[in-house]
Simulated scan of single mutants.
Amino acid sequence: MGAADGVAGRIGPNAIIRVLETLRESFGQDVTAGLFVQARLGHYLDQLPEKMVNETEVWRLHQVLREQLGQPTCADITWKAGLKTADYLLANRIPKAAQVVFKALPAAASARLLLKTIGGHSWTFAGSGQFSYEVGQTVVLTIRNNPLCRDVRTDVPVCDFYSATFERLFQVLVHPNTQVEETECEAKGDDVCRFELRWK
């Protein structure tokens, strides 16, 4: 049991559901079930979460994926799950009228408006971490005390789930050429997880 098990923050259920979907598509039902059981999340195989989940459940799932599949495969799975999460938000959580406004504004203004919206709901994805952002020539997002990086030590950034979600939302709502790079990560020993968003 790691230190993360003592943390009480909560994260939206997409962080579990979309990883489950991606694993089933990539590896099939049996492998997926085995990974979820190892992460002590077997109960979600029959009944998907409908409400916010304890952030330690998501942390355990990512840990098992890294341990059993390796970091590159874990990154691929969680990236795809992040894209699915953004698509779900676009289809079900961000009103169509608001999407029309985002798309009509100049990119910088749209980015500020979108980030104000994201910031107001950051507790749904950052859990007990702290989300902040700056809009300049480069859009910079940060998560401090990222719950998914607790007790994690790697040589590469590991927040592919967040990067993919941010990238897809910005590509659809702000600028189609948006690319996200995680330039700092607490799993690497940095002070924050830092995401830089650029478009040409």
Rank of each mutant, 00 (worst) to 15 (best):
G2E: 00
D5Y: 11
G6L: 08
G6P: 03
A8Y: 04
G9Y: 01
R10D: 05
I11G: 06
I11Q: 07
P13H: 11
N14M: 12
N14D: 11
A15R: 00
V19F: 06
E25H: 13
E25A: 15
Q29S: 15
V31Q: 12
V31T: 14
V31G: 04
A33T: 11
G34S: 11
L35M: 15
L35T: 09
R40A: 14
L41I: 14
L41P: 07
H43A: 15
H43T: 15
L45W: 09
D46L: 14
Q47M: 12
K51H: 15
M52A: 13
V58Y: 04
L61I: 08
Q63T: 10
V64K: 05
L65N: 00
R66S: 06
Q68L: 08
L69D: 07
P72I: 10
D76G: 15
K80C: 11
K80A: 15
A81R: 04
A81I: 05
A81C: 09
L83M: 14
L89F: 05
A91D: 07
K96H: 04
A98I: 07
F102E: 05
A108T: 01
A111G: 03
L113H: 04
L113F: 02
L115P: 00
K116R: 13
K116S: 01
T117G: 09
I118C: 05
H121S: 14
S122V: 14
S122R: 09
T124C: 11
A126P: 01
A126E: 07
G127P: 08
G127H: 09
S128A: 15
F131D: 05
V139G: 05
V139N: 07
V140W: 01
R144Q: 12
N145T: 13
P147I: 00
R150W: 08
R153N: 04
T154E: 13
V158R: 01
D160T: 15
D160F: 13
F161C: 07
A164V: 00
F166L: 12
F166E: 02
R168T: 00
R168Q: 06
L169M: 01
N177V: 01
N177I: 01
Q179A: 13
Q179F: 08
T183H: 13
C185F: 01
E186H: 10
G189A: 06
V192C: 06
C193L: 09
R194E: 05
L197I: 11
L197G: 03
